[in-house]
Amino acid sequence: MQIGIKHLLGLQGVSANDIQMLLDTATTFKQVLERPIKKVPTLQGKTVVNLFYENSTRTRISFELAEKRLSADAVNFSVSGSSVSKGETFKDTVRNIEAMKVDMIVVRHASAGVPLYLTKICKSIVINAGDGIHEHPTQALLDMFSIREKTGKLEGLKVCIVGDIAHSRVALSNIFGLKAMGAHVSLCGPATMIPRGIENLGVKVYTDIDKAMKENDVLNVLRIQLERKAREYFPSVREYHQFYGITQERIDRNNKDILILHPGPINRGVEITSDVADGPNQIILDQVTNGVAVRMSILYLLGTRTSEE
């Protein structure tokens, strides 16, 4: 049996079977990561390019480690800013990279749809490492892996995503992935951060964090962007923290068993306090470890897939 998808562009439309296979394979790779020699020869001779048009050191390092532990040749290609300012078009850049005979491209870009576009202009296998405010499927897979590892299941679980849903690529991927696996997904945040029509995806929307905490098993707390533009969506960091910040006091008062995830990097004292970020309910560093295993799983399953043509 091999995975159904050819590329990982997002989790929209990916089958429960494929997700199950990705998570199960990640479990095997996690065991590899526990060994003294954390390397397997699976992708020896394959070349993977990490094409990052946005600065995201964490995601890039996680992919790079995953690639190296599968013995692939990993190359980083980072471009700051858009191709507009750079002079060379995105298409030309990609053609240049492909001319160097690569097998897989891991892409991060500020514009949604770029991973799909890549599949149209080159022959490489494409993995989306985050496109605009669209999807970030590997983050969602590692979130799901971490939840499953901790609770033993995804089906029937109540998961609430908290924060700036409208400007998050993590939220949409989590919604698609978790729902495919039978979890109940809800969202919580100020009305200014809830995108229009999202309830049509079959998710419940809360604006009251205490209620959301009482009614859910898991909170996936998103990072609040502190840049000027993002700040137009709420009055102040202080007010955001007061009304949506996850504190130990809130956990104790609402749901002391709740599981807390955060995709990082954390703004301590904003969306989450230090006592929670370092406390017993969170699995934030497990997520980071699992990220490498999950990305190994994706690279392996897509990189060794034999095409039917």
Partner: peptide, 15 residues
């Protein structure tokens, strides 16, 4: 256009 489609396509939108 802002609406359900912009939400699921992840594109910036104008209402």
């Amino acid at each position: 256009n802002e609406g359900f489609n912009s939400t699921i396509f992840g594109l910036s939108s104008v209402p």
